[in-house]
Computed example of a mutant assay.
Amino acid sequence: MLLAGLAVVGLRVLTARYERTITREQLLDPTARAGRTDLDGPLNYLLVGSDRRPGDTGPQQRTDTILIVHVPAGLREGYLVSVPRDLLVTIPPGGGYPGGEDKINTAYEYGGGGQAGARLLSATLTKLTGIRFDGAALVDFAGLRSVIDLLGGVNMCVRTEVRSIHTNRVFHPGCQQMNGAQALDFVRQRYDLPGGDYDRQTNQQQLLGAMLERAGQTDLRSNPVQLHRLIRAVGGSLTLDTNGVPVEDLLLALRGLSKDALRGVQVPSYPQTIDQVSYVVLDNGSDGLFEAVRGSRMPQWAGAHQRWVTRL
């Protein structure tokens, strides 16, 4: 989504020059990959966020953020569907893992992290939802700190006072400018929030929208040094699978997206304790959501289920 924002400031010529800064890998399992390579829409992309850098082979790698980015035909609006990290799912065999039931954020770990972990996670999502993806991105959210700082910070709206369990920083209600460290700290919090992880999902969606908005506001053309640093920082935080589509074509196709055209969506679900372990399980409304994302009726679903939809 940030790359789409950068496209607004005219990166057609620069894309070829900086494309080499982005790591390319096959992040999608063959069962999870869409068979087409056109950009007519509707399009579905998998966005996986972690505090660890892509390719890190350290132990206990789990994904903090799992987003399905749905862009209906016309490519003028987008829906950021947050998948709860504690969602109880059936994980298929892969990466040496024999398969079984567990929280969805363990699929990346069981797959071994990196490319293999993303593949097992994508296969798990497709098995659950029936959605096949037009591409995927593995995002080092900790690495986005410098991206936010180079953008001059982002405007974030805090709905409920929350104290960080990581830094002891207190975030007071109201809209406020945050630098990279503050914004990333804020969107990691969930324990003091009334909605717990659901509120954290909304805050993560808000951050992506705020970055997109800030990228569109910043006249990077007048500061080529900052532009150079920003693109390198973005590239250093991303591992991409574009399904064979050139990055330049993807940028140009999504250039019409803006923060005002984005909606955050939560998967209809509820918390449940099973064998003394806290999970999130799907409720009956999730089937309609996944069907809408697979097809072309997402705007209609969002209009009929506003409880689960947030304007960013």
Results as ranks from 00 to 15, higher is better:
Val8Ile: 12
Val9Arg: 13
Val13Trp: 12
Leu14Tyr: 12
Glu19Asn: 12
Arg20Asp: 10
Glu25Ile: 11
Leu27Trp: 15
Thr31Met: 11
Ala34Thr: 04
Asp38Leu: 08
Leu43Asn: 10
Gln60Glu: 03
Gln61Glu: 03
Ile66Leu: 10
Leu67His: 11
Val71Asp: 00
Pro72Arg: 01
Ala73Thr: 02
Glu77Gly: 01
Gly78Pro: 00
Ser82Asp: 12
Val83Thr: 09
Gly96Asp: 06
Tyr97His: 09
Pro98Gly: 02
Ile104Arg: 04
Asn105Glu: 02
Tyr110Lys: 02
Gly111Phe: 06
Gly117Ile: 12
Ala118Asn: 10
Ser122Asp: 03
Thr126Met: 00
Lys127Arg: 12
Arg132Thr: 10
Phe133Ala: 03
Ala137Met: 11
Leu138Pro: 08
Asp140Leu: 06
Arg145Gly: 05
Met156Ile: 03
Val158Asn: 08
Val158Gly: 07
Glu161Tyr: 08
Ser164Cys: 07
Ser164Val: 10
Thr167Asp: 07
Arg169Cys: 02
Val170His: 11
Pro173Trp: 14
Gly180Arg: 14
Ala181Ser: 14
Asp185His: 01
Phe186Leu: 12
Phe186Ser: 03
Val187Trp: 06
Arg190Gln: 13
Gly196Ile: 05
Asp199Pro: 13
Arg200Lys: 14
Asn203Gly: 15
Gln204Pro: 02
Gln205Glu: 15
Gln205Arg: 15
Leu207Cys: 06
Gly209Lys: 01
Gly209Ser: 06
Ala215Thr: 11
Asn223Tyr: 01
Val225Asp: 12
Gln226His: 04
Leu230Ile: 07
Ile231Pro: 08
Ala233Val: 00
Thr239Arg: 06
Thr239Ala: 07
Asp241Trp: 02
Thr242Asp: 07
Val247Leu: 15
Glu248His: 10
Leu257Pro: 03
Pro268Asn: 03
Gln272Asp: 04
Val281Trp: 05
Asp283Tyr: 04
Asn284His: 12
Asn284Leu: 10
Gly285Gln: 11
Gly285Leu: 09
Gly288His: 03
Phe290Pro: 05
Glu291Leu: 04
Ala292Arg: 00
Ala292Glu: 02
Gly295Phe: 00
Ser296Pro: 08
Ala304Phe: 13
His305Tyr: 13
Trp308Pro: 02
Thr310Ala: 11
Thr310Cys: 09
Leu312Pro: 00
